[in-house]
């Protein structure tokens, strides 16, 4: 969990959120689960390997950032990586749904991930980050039982 920069240009994650929104929209329309599986891998890289090697971050740094000019603004990556992890969870459930014939499950999971990506892209609202507390509030019993 230590690889990659700890702070990034905040426009990078917004760009990545737009790409994610587009990819998930195509998955919803076509139901083509290999594309969702690819997106799950992208989420996993962002969450577990960091933004230094995340595919959409590399796209941003290579093709988009040079056209935008530099910025001094920086954003912590810890919340963003947590949100990528949440996206990964939904994408995995979606792939399992589509691939096993439970299309409704695949559709719902993809729709949730799409809503989160779109809110991030259009409103700069990181649903995964903001609901971290909510997720914690509703899952404490399991963790306490494990202790």
């Amino acid at each position: 969990m230590s690889a990659g920069p700890s702070r990034v240009d905040p426009r990078g994650p917004r760009f990545a959120a737009w790409v994610t929104t587009a990819v998930l929209a195509v998955v919803l329309v076509t139901g083509w689960w290999p594309l969702l599986a690819a997106q799950a891998v992208v989420f996993a890289i962002g969450a577990f390997a960091g933004f230094g090697v995340a595919p959409y971050s590399i796209l941003y740094r290579t093709f988009v950032a040079p056209r935008l000019g530099p910025t001094d603004e920086r954003e912590d990556t810890a919340p963003l990586r947590f949100a990528q992890g949440v996206g990964f969870g939904f994408a995995v459930v979606g792939v399992l749904g589509y691939a096993t014939g439970l299309t409704a499950l695949g559709t719902v999971a993809t729709a949730f991930a799409l809503a989160a990506a779109f809110l991030n892209a259009a409103f700069a609202f990181c649903l995964g980050c903001e609901t971290y507390l909510l997720i914690r509030r509703f899952t404490p019993t399991k963790e306490r039982a494990l202790r």
Partner: peptide
């Protein structure tokens, strides 16, 4: 899929505007 896509985007936009 198309209906779900449109529905999701509409709901997310409303939610985003309310939250903003």
């Amino acid at each position: 899929g198309v209906l779900v896509l449109v529905g999701t985007l509409v709901l997310a936009t409303v939610a985003g505007l309310v939250m903003r």
